[in-house]
Design a protein around this nucleic acid. Structure first.
Length: 477
DNA sequence: ATGTTC
């Protein structure tokens, strides 16, 4: 695959116009030589397919964790102009605003006591698994407020601290949310699931900060070596999935209506200025808000448990940041020397805004935004900072994690959950999940190393390593 | 990712 590309910088490669017909811009892939070995032809094809979409600006980008997805590659980034551009659910993903947040604690590993005990209590507190339901009751009118205001709604209901919201992208909610564009079916799925983790690679993990690489930024982010922290990775559950399904149907028709020709029907889309495009945007934003509220309520559950287990107050467990890695957003970017409003799709990619961006809270103005990249189960996670280079090269974007190397089906054939758990326990890592299969599918060896993906984004300048965290215990769906 | 195939 590598010979298709030309080198244009450190770990930076160009997929030229003409790889497939009708590309409007070239592809731009960030990858090391060793990661090229596992690059799928299908993902390259998808990178090129995205480059044919109307109104695309700059390049169709692939992050080093790129892999084959629905329509767009996972690890894909594309920005579209306000005038000519489109919006596509394939560029967001089914799990709208799947994302990650990180909370610090003042505890050291020895303060935790029995890891089995605390992980067991977290497992009881936070429902996990496919179709899991929350003890938390949400009325239909509360759901409307939640869809409009995300984390801000959750905090106003008492599930968090006021400063939590400013430590989320968008302040914890997208103002463009249009709850009225979320179907009854999606609402029905969403009502019982708020405050639940879901399944697959979603997790809640206790980690220890094992290494600090940038002491100044770590201090600003409130991260200390040897301290325990908590990482939460989840999304918009059945509600977001249903929003995607519903709008794919209308956008498939809209694609025809507006005379857009596509190399792949999974790229169904509509002009950003069309009623269909605007309707999806509003529904997507509402689903994104659901995901922020979901992560906020889970945060509250964790803080409540830690308060009773260790006697520490919620304010001693501040949020470092909350990042979205499946979403499309309006952002201002400098293009050919002038500021332009563009719609940036990040699908399995994380915003990595550098210092001085007005979207960032005052505390992170000098460092750039915290970028949270989870590892697979049992492997390191990273905290990084956004950079000026990301602003210049990738519309302020970086990777989102380590990609799979084996399918879920292959994983279940290859390993047994009990054996994976036993192996991790030998390393001192406790795992709780509703089924053995859930653990087998997520076994560390079924994923690429996050270390290599992180090395590429750091060396390419798309973000800067601040700290590395190792898992202590994890609950999975 | 997902009431794991309306």
């Amino acid at each position: 695959m590598q010979k298709l590309f030309s080198s244009v910088g450190r770990h930076e490669w160009d997929l030229p116009l003409g790889y497939i017909p009708d590309m409007r811009v070239s592809g731009r892939l960030f990858l090391s030589d060793s990661l090229f070995e596992s690059l799928e032809e299908g993902a390259v094809r998808q990178l090129a397919n995205v480059a044919t979409l109307p109104g695309i600006i700059g390049h169709s980008f692939g992050m080093p964790d790129i892999h084959w997805g629905y329509g767009f590659p996972i690890g894909g980034v594309a920005a579209f102009s306000e005038e000519e551009g489109i919006i596509s659910p394939g560029g967001v993903g089914f799990d709208i605003n799947c994302g990650v947040r990180m909370i610090t604690t003042p505890l050291s590993v020895s303060d935790l006591g029995s890891r089995e005990d605390i992980i067991g209590r977290l497992y009881q507190q936070v429902p996990t698994g496919v179709g899991s339901k929350s003890a938390f009751r949400l009325s239909a009118s509360a759901l409307d407020d939640l869809l409009a205001l995300g984390s801000k709604w959750a905090v106003s209901e008492g599930y968090g601290l006021p400063e939590d919201c400013i430590r989320c992208e968008e302040g914890g909610y997208m103002k463009e949310a249009a709850p009225e564009n979320v179907s009854e079916k999606a609402r029905k799925r969403g009502i019982p699931q708020c405050g639940t983790l879901g399944s697959g690679n979603h997790f809640l993990e206790l980690q220890v900060v094992s290494e600090i690489r940038d002491h100044e930024a770590a201090k600003t982010f409130g991260v200390k070596e040897g301290n325990v922290c908590c990482m939460i990775h989840c999304g918009s559950r059945g509600l977001g999935h249903q929003v995607c399904t519903d709008h794919l149907k209308t956008l498939e028709k809209a694609t025809k209506k507006y005379g857009i020709t596509l190399p792949d029907r999974q790229l169904s889309c509509a002009p950003l200025t069309s009623p269909e495009g605007e309707s999806y945007f509003g529904a997507m934003a509402a689903a994104a808000n659901y995901a922020w509220a979901n992560r906020q309520i889970i945060t509250h559950q964790v803080r409540t448990l830690f308060e009773s287990a260790f006697g520490i107050s919620p304010s001693e467990m501040p949020l470092v940041y909350d990042v979205a890695h499946n979403v499309a957003k309006w952002e201002m970017h400098t293009i050919d020397g002038s500021d332009k409003r563009v719609c940036v799709h990040r699908k399995g990619a994380t915003r990595a805004f550098g210092p001085g961006r007005p979207e960032l809270p005052e505390i992170y103005q000098r460092t750039g935004q915290p970028v949270i990249i989870p590892g697979s189960m049992g492997t390191a996670s990273y905290l990084l900072a956004g950079t000026e280079t990301a602003m210049e090269k990738t519309f302020g974007s970086t990777c989102h994690g380590a990609g799979r190397v084996s399918s879920r089906k292959e994983a279940k054939k290859a390993v047994r959950g009990a054996a994976v758990s036993a192996d991790l326990k030998k390393q001192g890592i406790i795992v709780r999940a509703p089924s053995g299969d859930a653990i087998a599918e997520e076994a560390p060896e079924m994923y690429k190393s996050s270390d290599e993906v992180i090395r590429v984004v750091h060396e390419a300048g798309l973000s800067r390593i601040v700290a590395r965290m190792m898992p202590l215990g994890v609950i999975k769906g």
